[in-house]
Design a binder for these strands. Structure first.
Lengths: 225, 225
DNA sequence: CCAAATCTTTATAAAATCTTTACAACTTTA
DNA sequence: TAAAGTTGTAAAGATTTTATAAAGATTTGG
């Protein structure tokens, strides 16, 4: 489950069911509405990341529903419609729809279009943040924190630290670390590693003499916890 | 003329001509490329607001062209293709295309889809006033203030400053900054960056010798706070 | 066209980082 | 537990990277 919620708005039960299964099996969180009124209430109460909107609703014209939603809802809306007339398509897009798919559509294409609009609507919300006890590593902004305090690392120290973090729990061999950080021709320069591990421990361990994060596996390599 | 520039990439002269007329009569500024190489050069030299990309180019596979563009080009790309297979559509959308239209398409729909992607791409970078301590940046009027006083920046200085502001907190690499500000062929001219960073610091830092806003990440790049 | 502004290039100083050395401390193994 | 092998640490030296000023080249605006 990637925690992205999608609201399906369609009056036909079979289509809702089909969409529900498709989306859920692709790790989306799904909610449903079968008419315009319900759709607007649900969207308002618990705004989803994306709305799939059928234009042919029983209680209100789909274009009106779209306009009402767009008065305040800024996230993507994809139209699903049985009508393929240019007039409908242009009107929907100009009313703020992000995409328009004509029924029947191919599920692969629907999923790709969902990924596409979600991608471009994604501002900066998710920065992959790794947490290890009192240590945080933000990969996108390249920031390491210890107890909320930013720790200043040189580029080599950061490369080593992030590599250890990305493989937390695993033992990384000297050979592997040297190859990844310094390159294949440095695989025998174990002393580099010792110097940099010591520097890292000084910066991130409470007591560098009794490390709890960077563990030595004698004769093999290091492990990050 | 609304000053929005669109780059048409298609090898067929008739289609280019048709698109040119359609777009120009709808107040877009239009440039053209008839092959992959030319397209990439044009997009790099003078990045348009949107690219219409035909997948069937003579000199290179369209999907590859799309990938190459997406390495650095962040604005919308709409694919125009004679192929309607689900495989092509999904692949293009997952490679970063914002929309996919199958030829022959209706011009009204094309224009509506152009408006749609331009609209959502505009939403992203519109946060009128950015504030960072004693610094203000108004993106729409291009005005920078330090303690209410307007700071006069040259266009290159402004480009650099606003790029840093828009990514505050993150480390931006030399490579990235050079590519964004000066273009892909300047990625090794690190000295430019040093000169302009120094000029910016003179203008916006209280003490340029002890910068608090533009932070050097040695060996990597710069970070704005 | 000229003058001012801006950008590019060069030179050099300063700072930060990396590499190497020497030796101390720890682990493993017999 | 002693010897051998491995790892840790500090600090000096070497190298790389960055900062800055200023001169030359180019562009821009009047």
């Amino acid at each position: 489950m990637n925690n992205v919620e999608i609201l399906i708005v369609d009056d036909e039960v079979q289509i809702r069911k089909m969409l529900f299964i498709t989306l859920q099996s692709n790790a989306y969180k799904v909610s449903e509405a079968s008419n315009a009124k319900d759709a607007i209430i649900r969207a308002a109460n618990h705004p989803p990341e994306l709305i799939l909107l059928d234009l042919g609703l029983p209680d209100e014209n789909g274009h009106i529903v779209l306009q009402k939603l767009r008065e305040w809802y800024t996230k993507p809306i994809i139209i699903l419609s049985a009508h393929s007339s240019e007039e409908d398509i242009v009107k929907a897009l100009d009313n703020g729809a992000n995409d328009y798919l004509v029924k029947p559509f191919r599920t692969g294409e629907l999923l790709a279009r969902i990924r596409s609009v979600l991608r471009s609507s994604k501002l900066e919300d998710e920065s992959p943040l790794l947490k290890f006890g009192d240590l945080d590593l933000d990969l996108s902004s390249r920031i390491v924190r210890k107890k909320e305090e930013v720790v200043k690392l040189t580029s080599t120290e950061y490369a080593l630290f992030s590599l250890l973090c990305k493989n937390d729990g695993k033992v990384l061999t000297h050979h592997y670390l040297l190859k990844q950080i310094w390159g294949p021709s440095y695989v025998n320069e174990s002393q580099y590693l010792r110097v940099f591990i010591a520097q890292l421990r000084k910066k991130i361990e409470d007591d560098p003499n009794r490390p709890t994060h960077i563990i030595t596996e004698s004769g093999v390599g290091y492990r990050f916890l």
